[in-house]
């Protein structure tokens, strides 16, 4: 419990920063919702006039796009990049931060098993991500209510936003694995941004080229938001693949962490 508490303390400022950024970005994006709904006809014509590749790049279907949930889906196509980067950052921090700050010797020479250190850090990371999710869900809901009186089904809204949770779990596990695989991570933020952006660009390319085979190697594409809006549920493969990748990557990371040499500084 002491490591868990200490980790959360270490994350506090970063977490506050992320939450403020999420609220500001959601407020900025969602402030366009009334205009989007009021000028639905004009918008529809405008988006219909764009090359089909533009909508495809973000995985959007024009027939489902107009309406509050369609707009939220559009916002989420970009917003998910941020949650991805945050999750990789949190995962990288599991071991990378100790390694970068050279504090591994201090912690690992204490009477505590490596597995316990790993799980404490893992839980602290998940807690931080959970707090972010609560902020995102709540801020999104209240901002929409503030800027528009448009009605939308709450369960679909929650299902849509919960895709962020799955994306975060997978990227968190990916960050954890990188943190135990890479020998020296000098810039955790830079690496997290690179990984998050990299997969985002791959998703855009895959969508434009309609390369459906790439879908299951990219966490951003495990969930099809347009499918969620249309059917008000997830594809079961999306849940299975996300949770499967999460469990496998975390298990591999734990094994490596328990067997790795902690080199002298």
């Amino acid at each position: 419990m002491n490591i868990y508490k200490q980790e959360l303390k270490q994350y506090r400022n970063t977490l506050i920063g992320w939450c403020i950024a999420y609220i500001c970005i959601l407020a900025l994006y969602l402030s366009f919702l009334p205009a989007f709904l009021d000028e639905g006809g004009g918008m529809r014509d405008y988006f219909a006039s764009l090359p089909p590749e533009f909508m495809a790049a973000f995985g959007l279907d024009i027939s489902l796009f107009f309406g509050p949930l369609g707009f939220i889906t559009f916002v989420m196509t970009m917003f998910v990049l941020l949650v991805g980067i945050q999750a990789v950052h949190m995962g990288l921090s599991i071991y990378g931060k100790e390694q970068r700050n050279r504090t591994s010797d201090f912690l690992l020479s204490k009477p505590v098993k490596r597995a316990k250190i790993f799980w404490s850090k893992f839980l602290a990371g998940l807690t931080a991500l959970f707090i972010s999710e609560v902020v995102i869900y709540s801020a999104g809901y209240f901002i929409i209510k503030m800027v528009s009186d448009a009605a939308f089904p709450m369960n679909t809204y929650l299902l849509l936003l919960a895709t962020c949770t799955f994306v975060q779990l997978v990227f968190f596990a990916l960050g954890t694995l990188l943190s135990v695989l890479l020998k020296r991570i000098k810039n955790i933020v830079g690496l997290a941004t690179g990984v998050g952006m990299g997969f985002f660009v791959i998703r855009m390319i895959a969508n434009i080229s309609n390369a459906t085979t790439l879908r299951w190697i990219n966490p951003y594409q495990f969930f099809d938001n347009m499918y969620v809006v249309a059917y008000n549920r997830y594809e079961s493969a999306s849940i299975l693949v996300s949770l499967g990748v999460f469990v496998v990557l975390e298990a591999v990371s734990l094994w490596i962490y328990q067997h790795m040499d902690i080199h002298a500084v």
């Binding site: 700050n101 050279r102 504090t103 201090f106 500084v265």
Partner: peptide
């Protein structure tokens, strides 16, 4: 244990 170089949490 006292290591030759000490590093702690800033």
């Amino acid at each position: 244990y006292l290591p030759s170089e000490v590093f702690y949490y800033d």
